[in-house]
Amino acid sequence: MGAAVAEEFRLFFRTALYVGGAGLVYWLVSLDAPGTVLLVALTLALLAFVGMAIFLAPRGAGAEGRSGVLGLLNRYIGFHEPVDAAPPLESGPELVPLGSAWPIITALGMVVIGLGLIFGAWLSLPGIGLVVWGAVGWLTQLDRMG
């Protein structure tokens, strides 16, 4: 313990605490299944991000002052950020990208698939072709450019 959890993830934790609490109260007040399921599902989805935070948090580094329960609360849901907090999680060399035709081709393919759902499965076939063509082009574009 003692590692500071990045603010990026405390954000999710605070929200999960609120939504989880709201879900519990909602169930007790209403016994309504659909709404409770939605709130519980949202809490779990938010907690998945918190799990990632704990996984990614630097061990033993960036510890914040207070210990005990208050220190724990501050680390996980507080609004304190160390002055020298390292800003990015991790960043390598950034690319300023070239243009690419693959996104528009892939998007067009997805839309044709969607239209196929309405006008007939036959129309989905060219859509699938476009998506596969677009995705392969997209994934291999940088390799082909060396």
Partner: peptide, 24 residues
């Protein structure tokens, strides 16, 4: 202070998907 978004081609994809969806 960044040179672009994290996933530039995904960014283009979302724009075109939005436009095509609106046209539908």
């Amino acid at each position: 202070g960044a040179p672009d978004v994290a996933f530039p081609r995904l960014n283009a994809f979302t724009y075109w998907l939005f436009i095509f969806s609106a046209l539908i």
